[in-house]
Design a protein around this nucleic acid. Structure first.
Length: 197
DNA sequence: GTGAGGATCGTCT
DNA sequence: GACGATCCTCACA
């Protein structure tokens, strides 16, 4: 197991108060933690995408505020979980002040704690590779046990929240920037950030 | 190793 | 009524 300080600082709403492009880049290397039934499930963020809102045709917020995407228009640091293709969840964290839409999609993690539980939730053997456990947006939600019903709209900047992001001080290393993938619109924008590894 | 296609449902038009 | 910020399986080289 990897060593860690007992109290890694939790990212505050100030962190998410900035542009999604900046937040996305800074989130790389941070640790997302889900407390589930008293167990810590965590992973280092290895891949993210920024979604800008009204200026970004690929964003859920592009066509304006609806009941489904209201989180993106709300205050920063709120988890936005949505259901896609009838079978997968994806998790975002809202950025920018209340009233301005924007967010960062968490696309991939490197598992740190609770790997056995993650494998069980994914229906995989304990020795499954991290790529199979949390190597995609839908996979990491399943591995962490995140669902829309339980996690959409919760504040990830509160220490009492079951879901939050910690900075354990490990430098992110080399960052690669590429166009976003899996989109039908505005996919040419270089808004995807990943750890080179 | 690589590429194509199917599964499945909440949300918007 | 149609689509989508995905993942998995199968076929073929």
């Amino acid at each position: 197991m990897s060593p860690r300080s007992p109290h890694s600082p939790i990212l505050t709403s100030d962190f998410f108060l900035r542009s999604p492009e900046i937040v996305a880049r800074d989130l790389l290397g941070k640790v997302i933690v889900h407390r589930r039934n008293g167990e810590r499930l965590s992973g280092r963020i290895a891949e993210v995408e920024a979604y800008l809102g009204l200026d970004d045709p690929a964003s859920h917020a592009f066509r304006g505020r609806t009941s489904a995407n209201a989180v993106l228009f709300g205050p920063p640091g709120i988890a936005y979980v949505y259901f896609i293709y009838g079978m997968h969840y994806c998790v975002n964290i809202s950025c920018l002040p209340d009233g301005e839409p924007g967010g960062v999609l968490i696309r991939a993690l490197i598992p740190l704690e609770g790997i056995k539980t993650m494998a069980r939730l994914r229906g995989l053997p304990e020795n499954a590779k991290s790529q199979q456990l949390t190597g995609g947006p839908g996979k990491l939600c399943e591995a962490l046990g995140i669902t829309r019903a339980t996690h959409n709209g919760i504040d990830v900047t509160k220490a009492t929240s079951p879901l939050h992001v910690e900075d354990d001080g490990v430098p992110p290393g080399k960052i690669q920037i590429t166009p976003r993938i899996g989109l039908s619109k505005a996919k040419e924008r270089p808004l995807r950030f990943l750890l080179k590894d």
